[in-house]
Write a protein that binds this DNA or RNA. Structure first.
Length: 576
DNA sequence: TTAGGGTTAG
């Protein structure tokens, strides 16, 4: 870089050389350069000092960066050199050091600018940083920096990372001229927090505002389609991906696999997965999770073993998928072996989510005593889902005493989770204990717990049609109810078992199914109905019979399970 | 001619 005989570098050339050196990660050259800087007498030049700080920060040599900074007299420490060191600290996760520098800046009345904020705000990445994030937001308002779109976008993302979606939403609506990054930040944020319907609305709004979606936008949209079971919109997104030439983007390919897998389009998910030359851990997790949640535990396990053979190192998340798959496929010993291999082979400490999978695994196999011993051995102590898994196992094996014990534990941790009250109440119903059922009902009333209104929805021509029990608001109400009558009549004529009639308050899943049969729906093969509460026993019988009558497959996804109905039989899988 | 905003699975 610096040859003898060449023209001597000066204060203008050094920043450029230092920047190139840090971009190329040439640490020894960087230190040598610092010596040259001193030799050529440029070390007192502000541009050079700042470039040196940046270079050392990029080399993770924060102490050297700080040393250069300390050598700058207080009177000449500019906003820019503060910003360089602050960004270095934040990028190396030293948030409190960055905040100390901000405090010093303000105490010494060094002006704070947009870049100062852009350096600091990304340090607020978790809920515990929210207060500091809010104080930085206040600071931007004070200095009128929020009008800088980069600053506003950065603070918007901070709210998303800290889980404060309401603040993110408020800020988003306050930004007058939003750009692609603004839209992506809110779409990704909503999608990560499970606000699928809002994401699809925003996706429309964005296009109405003439902002063209890019790969990042589509990743968020696909993830929401996966959550909503909106396969038709997902397919439209796939067409856009191909048209725009985004087909090679690995994020998008993984999102497509996950979307198809979770919407029941396993064949398409598998085709994309198989054609992917560069499968990563995320791709494997998406496909394994898809097979597991749709009742193909055996394929999920086979794929997991293939993943290991392909030398992909598993993480905690893929273990959740494979353990769940084992428990559904009844592969108890295989699941236990995987669980033990987490620590012994991969040095991964099982989290409470893995313990709840294994409690479920043992519980389904009827090994309730072992499940209890495992709970006792948990280093982090059992949480709600662990006791919930035990409670679920007690339901399968009709163990009322243990169920009451698990219930007492779980409501201590999650007193407002209605699902557990319903579960115990169902155990009492199944064991003919009407007093028990009454006891739960009283308990719920005393605690002010009300069952959510159960609703179901089905996707048709890209639109989601939502039904509540006894719904008469739909424009096709007359046809839907008439279709339902025909279905019940048809099932009775064929004597498909005890078909409960449609009474005044017709269950929402029945309405959704009748609607889908009238209008068609957007799934590839199956009719997918999503219900926010558990599908009830009566509807189970109904859907089973209708699937035989009309020779169609139905998938009903409720709060915890996928129910696959086909030709008068049903299989169920808890998905998480 | 020194400082800088958004990304996938569970």
């Amino acid at each position: 870089m610096l040859r003898s005989g060449a023209a001597a570098p000066n204060a203008f050339t050094f920043p450029f050389i230092l920047k190139s050196s840090s971009a190329l990660s040439l640490t020894p050259t960087g230190t040598q350069l610092h010596c040259h800087v001193i030799k050529f007498g440029c070390h007192l030049e502000p541009f050079v000092q700042t470039a040196l700080i940046t270079m050392y920060c990029r080399f993770s040599s924060l102490e050297n960066a700080h040393k250069v900074f300390d050598e700058i007299p207080h009177s000449t420490r500019s906003t820019v050199c503060y910003n360089a060191l602050i960004s270095g600290f934040i990028q190396k996760s030293r948030f409190s050091d960055g905040m100390l520098l901000l405090r010093e800046m303000r105490a010494r009345e060094v002006p704070v600018n947009a870049v100062t904020i852009l350096g600091l705000v990304p340090g607020c990445t978790a809920p515990e940083h929210l207060d500091l994030g809010i104080s930085l937001h206040c600071l931007t308002s004070k200095y009128n920096l929020i009008t800088d779109l980069a600053v506003a976008n950065c603070i918007l993302s901070m709210y998303v990372h800290c889980g404060s979606i309401s603040s993110a939403k408020k800020l988003f609506h306050e930004i007058p001229h939003k750009n692609l990054i603004t839209w992506n930040a809110i779409i990704s944020g909503y999608s990560q927090h499970g606000l699928g319907t809002e994401v699809l609305d925003l996706y429309q709004d964005m296009q109405s505002a003439n902002i063209c979606p890019d790969e990042v936008t589509l990743v968020g949209v696909l993830s929401s389609c996966a959550n909503l079971g909106a396969q038709r919109i997902g397919r439209e997104v796939e067409e856009i991906i191909n048209r725009r030439g985004f087909g090679l983007n690995p994020y998008l390919k993984n999102s497509l696999i996950s979307m198809y897998a979770r919407c029941g389009g396993l064949a398409r998910a598998r085709a994309i997965f198989d054609a992917m030359p560069d499968k990563n851990l995320i791709s494997w997790t998406a496909i394994i999770g898809g097979y597991g949640m749709h009742g193909h535990g055996d394929i999920a396990v086979e794929l997991f073993d293939r993943m290991i053979t392909a030398r992909i190192r598993p993480d905690k998340a893929v273990f959740v998928c494979v353990l769940t798959a084992c428990s559904h496929a009844g592969l108890t010993q295989k699941g236990l072996d995987y669980f033990h291999s987490m620590k012994s082979v991969y040095d991964l400490d099982p989290g409470s989510e893995h313990y709840s999978c294994v409690v479920d695994l043992l519980g389904r196999a009827g090994r309730l005593a072992e499940a209890c011993r495992l709970i006792d051995s948990m280093p982090m102590g059992p949480d709600g889902p662990v006791w919930g898994a035990l409670l679920g196992a007690c339901k399968i094996h009709k163990n009322v005493d243990l169920a009451e014990f698990a219930f007492a534990k779980v409501v201590e941790i999650e007193p407002k989770n209605i699902g557990y009250y319903v579960l115990l109440s169902n155990i009492y119903t199944e064991t003919g204990d009407s007093e028990g059922v009454l006891k739960i009902r009283v308990m719920m009333r005393e605690r002010g717990l009300k069952k959510d209104p159960g609703y179901s929805y089905v996707e048709c021509k890209g639109k989601t049609h939502l039904f509540i029990a006894g719904d008469r608001n739909h424009s096709q109400t007359k046809e839907i109810y008439s279709k339902l009558e025909d279905l019940v009549k048809g099932c009775r004529e064929k004597e498909y078992g005890e078909i409960p009639s449609n009474n005044v308050s017709v269950h929402s899943e029945r309405l959704a199914i009748a609607f889908a049969l009238l209008n068609g729906n957007d799934s590839e093969r199956d009719i997918l109905v999503i219900k926010n509460l558990r599908i009830c026993g009566d509807c189970h019988v109904f859907v089973k019979s209708v699937s035989k009558l009309v020779n169609r497959r139905f998938v009903v996804r409720d709060a915890t399970r996928f129910h696959h109905f086909s030709g008068g039989s049903c299989s169920c899988n808890d998905y998480w």
